[in-house]
Design a binder for these strands. Structure first.
Lengths: 227, 227
DNA sequence: ACAAATTTAGACAGGCTTGTCCAATTCGTC
DNA sequence: GACGAATTGGACAAGCCTGTCTAAATTTGT
């Protein structure tokens, strides 16, 4: 309804542009309506293409769905690794740097369109397509957590943190900085910039209170166990 | 497939028993297939009744769906408040008591059939039925978190914890003790007893490392910042 | 055991969806 | 400008699903 603005104003789009357009529209419709509820006519309309074109490009509904998931998975993983690459390995202000990192992680990977849609599709249809799930599970969370754990291990080795098990710390870091966004995520909503910042700030403070080495121990403990 | 064992062996079931049977089957089918994909014939078969009986009891598909959500919401909230009532207000061994509480919370509220199904339904259909969502949001997480926050505030007041904002602490507590179960939840799976215990243990330890008052400060910090 | 209420199986109409086919039109390229 | 490829819109069959209706069988209460 509110779509069709920008796509339709460029009547001549290339073959490839239409393929992308279709996958985009399909992503949005599959997420909104679920696999069973998604309607090829609606996808075609939302993509600004005829139904036949959808079939020409993707064969049938199931293949189109696969294409959507593959597409989403790739983009999400790319985004996650690009963001992990910005991890503060040599922090100036550890708290501020970790908060900024957490905000980037949330904005670029978890709260953006791709992240929210992929999550919803996996939750809704993951059990029906175990193969798709398996691929995502290997490529996605598994490698993400390892990569993040390695960064935390380096921080610990450099004396900025005190961590027993970097894998546990990485998972808890992500859990903490998202703690206040759970409900919004649950409903597929988009948290405001301010909510993201607040959740990240609270999460990182607690994380540092638990894992900060004595050199960088936060105000909270300093105030409680002085001298 | 694996259903129909116990229900079918009792051919004479009361009116009310059939209503429950139908709602139960509907819950399972709606969760598995989504609203659009759910099929009344299948629900009837899985409940061991005729299709007409489903219509006699619940009118139409949408009303049946409402009944399912209402049912699930009520049972879940009851379970959550019953479990919060077992919060360790006068802890003997704070760490052990909080771990046991976290395990109860997970087993009775979050990992059980009702919890997993309600979460999945809200994620999948929450946007389509804002009214249902609103009711759940008020009754569910809102009150849960407040109740839990109040308990943590009492622990802090009694000197067992050191907490600035009990609401934040409550949310972070839940996030931490579930940190390692996220992927399993995402796929609608059921974590093993051991996974629940491990996640709770790791979560509570980190929670206490961050929020423990100096009297109960955990080994982790004692070992790192001696004398 | 009898009468009322409930349940059942099946048929059925109406609507919607997928996927195919085709003739007419438009597009990209030379 | 002309040719081949892609796109379009619409018609179409086949299947599935919801929700209704019926007549027969069963269960419940008394």
């Amino acid at each position: 309804m509110k779509l069709g603005v920008s796509p339709d104003t460029f009547p001549p789009r290339s073959h490839e542009a239409k393929r992308i357009s279709v996958v985009d529209a399909a992503t949005s419709v599959f997420c909104r309506e679920g696999y069973a509820g998604a309607n090829i006519d609606l996808i075609a309309a939302e993509a600004g293409v005829s139904r036949q074109t959808v079939y020409n490009h993707h064969g049938d509904k199931e293949k189109l769905f696969m294409a959507v998931v593959r597409d989403l998975t790739e983009r999400c993983n790319a985004g996650i690794f690009a963001t992990i690459a910005t991890f503060p390995d040599q922090p100036i202000d550890l708290e501020a740097d970790l908060i900024a990192f957490a905000v980037r992680m949330n904005r670029n990977c978890i709260c953006n369109r791709d992240g929210r849609f992929l999550r919803k599709l996996i939750q809704a249809e993951g059990e029906r397509y175990p193969e798709l799930f398996a691929e995502w599970r290997e490529q996605g969370p598994g490698r993400t957590w390892s990569a993040l754990a390695a960064r935390f291990a380096r921080l610990a080795y450099a004396g900025h943190l005190s961590i027993d098990d970097p894998d546990v710390a990485a998972r808890q870091f992500l859990a903490l900085v998202n703690a206040e966004l759970q409900i919004t995520f649950m409903l597929g909503g988009m948290p405001t910039e301010e909510e993201v910042l607040r959740s990240a700030t609270n999460g990182v403070r607690t994380f540092l209170a638990a894992f900060g080495s004595y050199k960088t121990t936060s105000v909270r403990q300093a105030a409680l166990a002085p001298a």
